[in-house]
Computed example of a mutant assay.
Amino acid sequence: MKRGVTPSFQDLYGHPPETIVQAPGRVNLIGEHTDYNGGFVLPMAIPQQTHVELRKREDRRVRAFSLNTGQRGEILEYELGQEDRRKRWIDYLQGVTYVLRRAGHALTGFEVRIHSEVPLGSGLSSSASLDVSLLRALRQAFSLPLDDVQIALLGQQVEVDFVGAPVGVMDPMAASIAGVGVALFLDTREMRFERVPLPPGVDLIVINSGVAHNHSAGDYRVRRAECERAAELLGVKQLRDLTEADLPRAEKLPDPLGRRVRHIVTENARVLATVEALRKADLPTLGTLFYASHDSQRLDYEVSVPEIDLLVDLGRADPDVYGARLTGGGFGGSVVMLAREGAGAAVAARIARRYADQSGQRPAILLPQAPVSRQA
């Protein structure tokens, strides 16, 4: 393998793949941290995808290569039935085979090559995109009787039960069933969903701040534990069971539990209002809801960081932006903005430039998408 040359599946394993699949990343329009509280979310797929090529083996050996690890030529291996968390990218693959075997699905070994266009730690669900693409590849290769919702639920189990990231169901559901340009209105308790098109007159912007996050790290776990404790103290199974009428009682909880409850309750209400605004193509109301959501994440849920706040403030100051907010789990990641139709590319470019000048970070514009050459 020549230095600097991207290895193909043939280069790595000496034969072509049998299965080639993809799964997208996602941007969440609104509904942050509500999924693990049984609430409402509104994600949509983005054009960036994770690509998986796979070929079955006759033994129980799994051999895997990722173009995104920055380590050329490194093939990692393990035996089916001997999955052991290593705190490396291969844990996602080990988690996939672990949950499939636990669910009673028969597998043999296989070889896999992975290439993701979804930036890691960007708040755009790179891990869910990886989980779902791997599950799709194995479903196809081994003729597994799994539908798209089952794929998503298994993807969540990979993160929670093996990788150790206590995520909700939104990300794998978005990677498995959402589309580009159409929001997925999902009730995470009842697992009911509806597709809601974006209205005319708006461009969607997604800018990665350059500040990476990690859902298996401590802050995300702390927020989830705070919500569980608040629900227990308020005598409900999940914070989804509360309404705005319950907020005076919730606000008497020890700080910061009351503020955590207030974010979840008001964010659920904002998702419902956003769906109605989308249906009515009410762009000013959508913008107001975006900013209110960000302020709630910043003040009540405390998951924003100064760089993200700067990007949102730059959006507030731009006459062509209706609204902007932190998207994803927080502590870094990306912002999503709604801009006047036809202005999105120019708006994204000038906001990214101003942000880079003021923050010293290197932002990346994910939407509107510039033409890219695929390495898969």
Rank of each mutant, 00 (worst) to 15 (best):
I114V: 15
D91H: 04
R195C: 00
S116M: 04
Y36E: 10
A292E: 14
G328Q: 09
T97F: 02
R72A: 15
V261W: 01
S143F: 12
A165C: 06
G332E: 03
L310K: 09
L138W: 01
R192K: 14
S122V: 10
G329H: 05
N37Y: 05
Y220C: 09
D187N: 13
E194C: 05
Y36K: 05
F185M: 04
G360S: 11
A178I: 05
P254Y: 07
R259H: 15
L67A: 15
L366T: 12
V202E: 06
E267Q: 08
Q297W: 01
Y355C: 09
R350H: 10
R354V: 01
S373C: 09
N214T: 04
A141V: 05
D84A: 14
F193S: 08
Y301V: 12
E341P: 01
L134V: 14
L314N: 06
V347D: 02
L135R: 02
L253V: 04
F142E: 09
Q94W: 01
H115D: 15
L80H: 00
A376N: 12
V167G: 06
L138P: 00
A230W: 00
A273R: 13
Q369I: 11
G14V: 08
M170T: 02
G25S: 09
V303E: 06
Y301K: 11
R195E: 12
G201P: 10
D11V: 09
L42P: 02
I46L: 12
R224D: 03
G73C: 13
E53Y: 05
L29T: 10
E58A: 15
Y301Q: 11
R362C: 00
P306Q: 12
G39M: 08
A225M: 11
P284Q: 09
S304V: 12
L80D: 00
N208A: 13
D295M: 12
P319D: 11
A230C: 08
K56A: 15
R229G: 00
V169W: 00
L184P: 03
V112C: 11
T327E: 07
L234M: 13
D246G: 13
N268M: 11
P363S: 09
R63W: 06
Q297N: 14
W89I: 01
S334A: 15
L338Y: 02
H33V: 03
G287W: 03
I205T: 09
R55W: 06
Q10M: 12
E111V: 07
R189Q: 11
L338P: 01
T97R: 02
D246M: 07
D313V: 06
L326Q: 10
I75E: 00
L107R: 08
F193C: 00
A106S: 13
A225F: 03
E74I: 14
R192W: 02
